[in-house]
Structures are given as C-alpha cells and as structure tokens.
Design a protein around this nucleic acid. Structure first.
Lengths: 346, 346
DNA sequence: TTGTATGCGTTATCAT
DNA sequence: ATGATAACGCATACAA
C-alpha cells in the first residue's frame, strides 16, 4: 500500500536517515561530504527498495508542490486545448505538473472548484478568468490568492476588466475583427450576422465591440436581430445560424465567435441549400488545427493558443523564480487568415 | 506569501491547535464535544483570517492527496477530450482533482513524465496505456505502482495485451469494424483503404484486425498498399489520403482511424475533385461532437468517450473506497452510426 | 564524515 | 470540554 521511506533505506544501508538525505540531495556538489563507501551502500539500498521520495512530505517541507493550476472555461473548445498543450509542454519541461480544471460559468459549483483548487497550495495558477466575472465568491477567493502572493497568470483579452495586479498574456480579437470587418465591408457586405455563442459574454466583447465600431464607422446601422446570442455548443450555433438565415432579409456574411461554432454555421448554411462563400461568407476565430481542412477552408482570425499557453507558463515560472520582479504583460497579436469561406457579397 | 495556519487560528481564538482541529472536523457529528462558545470563537477566527487547511499537510497526514492522475496519448484528438471531460466531472463531484498528462509515445521523456507522476503519490491513476507498449522503463514504473497497490484503471481495447491486474474500462472497435466492413462490402466496396494514423499502432489493432478478418471472410485479397500508416495529425491523414487516391486502382471506401483524421481525408478527397460518398465513402471512429456537422455528415463508430471517462473514474473511486474488491471490468459497446459519408460503390 | 534534533501543518490518541 | 503530544516523511543546522 505504501512505498518505502527514507528510514527504510537508512535501515537497510545501516546509516542514519540524515545520511540518506545527504547522499540523495548532494548529487555531485560536495556540500556535505559523504564517503564513497557509504554513498554506494545508500544508493544500493535505494535501488533495492525502489525507494522514491514522498512528494507529499517534500511539499510540506519545501513549501513547493511543483504543481501549477490551470483553469480553462470550456473543455470542448479546441482553442483551449492548444493553450493547455502549450502550458503543459513548458511546465513538464520544468518538472511541473498541471492540475487542470475546466470551469464553465454555468457550473453550479464553479466557486467550489476554484476554492478547492486554491487550497491545494499549488505553486502557481494560470487561468482564463472567465468564470470570475460571474461569481463574487470566486473574486473573493482570487483576491485571497493575490494577497497571499500566489503567482497568477491571466490569459485574457486586452480590455479585460481585471483589476488584480497579475502577470498577463494579453490577446484579443479587437483589431483582428476591425480588419475582418473592413475586409467584409470592402466586399460589399452590409448585413453581417454575429453568432455570439459563448458562455461568458465578457469573453466575446472584444469581438462584439469591434464589430459595432466597424459598422458605425462605415455608416451601417446596427441591426440587433443580426446578433444572436446562444450557447457554446455546435448545436447551438447550428440553430443560431438557421435563425439568422431565416431572417426576412438574411445576412450575406457571418461572424462565428470561434472556429468550433463555425462548423455548425457551415452545416446550417449547407442545410438551407445555400453556398459558402457564394451566398454567405463565414469567418471564425482561433485558427484551430482543422480550420484549414474544413469544406470550405475556413477564414479565421488566429491567436495561436499554444504560444499563449507557453508564454503564460514562462511568465509563471519566471515569477516563481523571482516573486519581486515587476509585473509583466505579454501582448500576442492576432492575425487574420483569409481562406475560402469568405468572398464578395452577391 | 503563505496562508494562515491552524496555529494562527488557535492563537486568535485563544484555544489550542487541537481544539481548532476538533471544531473543524466534527462539523455536525458530535464525536468530540466542543462547547458552543468555543466553537463560535474558532469559527470566527477562521473567517477573520481566511484560514484554509493546508492540503500538503493534509496529504502527508492522511496519506491521501485527493488527486487522480490522468494520462492520455494525444491531447489533440477530440475523443480524448471527451474522456477527460467525463473523468473530470466524476472526479470533481467527489472532491478530487485531475493531474493531467498527455504522453505521446514519441515523447522522449515519456518515462520521465510517467515516473514523475507516479511519485506524486497520487491516490489513483487512470490511463490510456498506449505509451506503456513502447517503453520498458514505463512498464517497470507501472509494475511498481501495481505492487504498491496504487489503484489504477486502464481505458483500453478489449484485446489489449495488458498483463497487469487492474480495473479496466474495455472498449474496442473490433465488432463495430466488423459491422462497418459488412456494410461496406454489402455496398459492393472491394477496395477499402485504411488510414492508420496513430502514434501507437497497438491502439489501432482492434480496427486493423477486424478489417483484415472481414476482408478474408469475404474472400477479398488484402492489398497492403491500401493500408497506409501515418502520423496522428490532420495533415498526416491529408497526405495519406492523397497517396491512397493516387493509387492506380484507387479505393472506393476509406476507413480513417478516427474522426479527427477523417477531416483531413474529406478535404483531400475534395481537393482531388472527388465526391463523398459518390466516388469514395469515408468512415471514421469516435463520433466526436462535430462529426454530425461536417460536410458531409460523417459516418462513424462511436465509443462515447465521456461515458468511458465517467466509468473509469467511478471504478477508481470505488477501489479507493475498498481496495480489496474484486477486479472489475466494464465493457462499453461501440456502435456504428451511418450518416452521409458512406454509400454504394460506383 | 556521520548522527541528532527540530520543524513543516495536520490529525488522532490520550490525559486532564 | 479541552489541551499536550506524537506521528506523517523529509531536509537541514548543528553537534559529535
């Protein structure tokens, strides 16, 4: 049931527990000298018993758990898996493990999960802080973490209303959306639908805002019926798209809040015997791996989730090294990728 | 930097540390009686200080870390997200956290990650044991875990050559593949390609075996050039498909080792100006969420990853409760889902 | 060169 | 009803 302890090794090697510790911790540096003979006996005993230091005791003793908490809003969205992937690569290279939680704001027990996570005495936390917007409890817990100076890195939109002083990886789709809208407008699109299928509206504001700005700047009236809020599943976007296309005067272009939901949009359009991009253009966000393989290939705005994850993790590791370093913000630009799903309005 | 400890609470409340522990642990049951007055004071102090028990100390003391290790082979494959999702839901409901590692067998440091993970003194481990096939080191580590009676649940194919005595969630595509092949054969398909894009060949043997069996039973010669092994990315499957379709006598149907890779296949077919299912039928595996929304809607075999994850987690939790219970195996049937991507051979 | 003693934050056993 | 004290497994300052 339980593995061998340091004491077992010491007993077998015929030395004291402290000596075992010395041998194990002074690999090559000769801080505490140990005779070759003793060292050999200890090492043999270690192998003999398959001894492995107990991480729990280590954590209690050292204060460090070698664990990083990672909170993402939606485990079903491929974009976040890229983020997870990036974080994990960077973390495991540094000997850290990832404690993953997907906290969608609909979760009744969002606060519980978050609280519980924070109690684990993780070394640091990386999060896409969507759920925080919804819950005062969560904000309080977060405030505690900040107060205790647990290193936290937020992955968020530039305009996020995060009042806490934490390191951040900033990336939003505001400018990319401006660009996308300019492109669509130049193609004579005037009725542009927006499938706002996102659990936390705050997370999509960068796109929504830019959408509105663009329209206004171009002197196009904003039609509220063109913006449809729905849930975060493909099915949701499928229905949202149908709703949009059944409008008396249907849109000629569609913005889907992410590539994942764009799949549902493409399907809905097809089911209504319409063609992309002939009848309606579709533009997604995230440039998820399969975006370039969909039929038609999806035009999208890209944030490079893996890079975001990597950078967030680096930020965290750096702060773990030096908790007093000035607060950092890394800005990762998004870029527009035009493929086959967008074309001139007809 | 560090949170308040039990001692701080005790000091503020003017009682001993033990009393604090008593109050906190005997919520409602009156095992150890505590006066209302004392109880109140302690609770107040707890709130005042935002005291939260230290998980590290708890772990050391109780032996339990309330953490479950989860190892999946490929973080990019949506099927495994479903598994993760299922595990996570079940686990977090029981107050457990997930230590997630994606160990692809190409990983140089697969053993390291695995070893490291096992040293964390996790309470239990759920894994898709693909990487184990490749590495002797990993097998040794696994053997240690088994010896120490760390609860382990394997999510694997029925015919998996796992010699260890662990609880298992069994699910493979052997029978579903037989079914699929019978279906394709009945549609007069004779040249059926197989896109074997998988990092660990062992993981796909259920399908490959059934593929061969079916062909033989039908008296169709097996053409090795129809089986193309490739990597696990969409791009890999894209190229594999092109290779298949450029064959002098090209296949009329394609089995893609999973839905994710089927996307690449669909795209490749389209790019060669062929039609699905008119010119070539495509069949995937996993019934990933977007499968039903692709163009065309993808025929596939379904394993319900989320359910697998849930069941695996339940198995683990049950063994955590009672380590002596008889070894369990849960068999989850796969079923064939016919949609638009398959049709008669022309 | 090696061993002893102490503390990390808990819980549980035993006195008081 | 409450408190002193001993583990849990380890690292380390200090004594031998």
């Amino acid at each position: 049931m339980k593995g061998p302890t340091q004491a077992d090794v010491a007993r077998l090697a015929g030395v004291s527990r402290a000596t075992v510790s010395h041998v194990l911790n002074n690999r090559l540096d000769r801080q505490v000298p140990v005779s070759e003979e003793t060292r050999r006996r200890v090492l043999e005993a270690v192998i003999e018993l398959d001894y492995v230091p107990d991480a729990r005791a280590l954590a209690l003793r050292s204060g460090s758990t070698k664990t990083i908490g990672l909170i993402i809003p939606d485990i079903h969205n491929p974009h976040f898996w890229e983020v997870v992937d990036g974080v994990e690569k960077e973390a495991s290279a540094a000997g850290y493990h990832i404690l993953l939680s997907s906290i969608s704001p609909e979760d009744k027990n969002a606060e519980d999960i978050f609280k519980n996570l924070s109690h684990r005495r993780i070394d640091g936390l990386i999060m896409v802080p969507s759920f925080v917007y919804q819950s005062e409890e969560a904000q309080k817990t977060l405030a505690q973490l900040v107060k205790r100076r647990i290193p936290i890195v937020g992955i968020m939109a530039d305009r996020g209303e995060m009042s806490f002083k934490i390191d951040r990886v900033l990336s939003d789709y505001h400018d990319a959306t401006l660009e996308a809208m300019a492109y669509l407008l130049s193609l004579q699109h005037r009725r542009i639908g927006f499938i706002f299928g996102i659990a936390v509206p705050e997370l999509g504001n960068d796109r929504l805002l830019a959408y509105r700005e663009s329209l206004q700047a171009a002197g196009v009236a904003i039609d509220p019926s063109l913006i449809v809020e729905c849930g975060p599943t493909i099915e949701d976007s499928y229905h949202a798209t149908r709703q949009l296309l059944e409008l008396p005067s249907r849109p000629t272009a569609l913005l889907a809040i992410n590539d994942f939901l764009a799949i549902g949009a493409l399907r809905a359009i097809k089911d209504m015997n319409l063609d992309v991009p002939q009848d309606v253009s579709v533009l997604g966000y995230d440039d998820v791996p399969f975006a370039n393989y969909l039929i038609p290939r999806l035009s999208t705005a890209s944030k490079d989730g893996e890079l975001m994850g990597r950078e967030a993790c680096k930020l965290l590791l750096a702060r773990l090294e030096d908790s007093d370093r000035p607060r950092q913000e890394i800005r990762l630009p998004a870029r527009l990728i035009l493929r086959e799903s967008t074309g001139p309005a007809r």
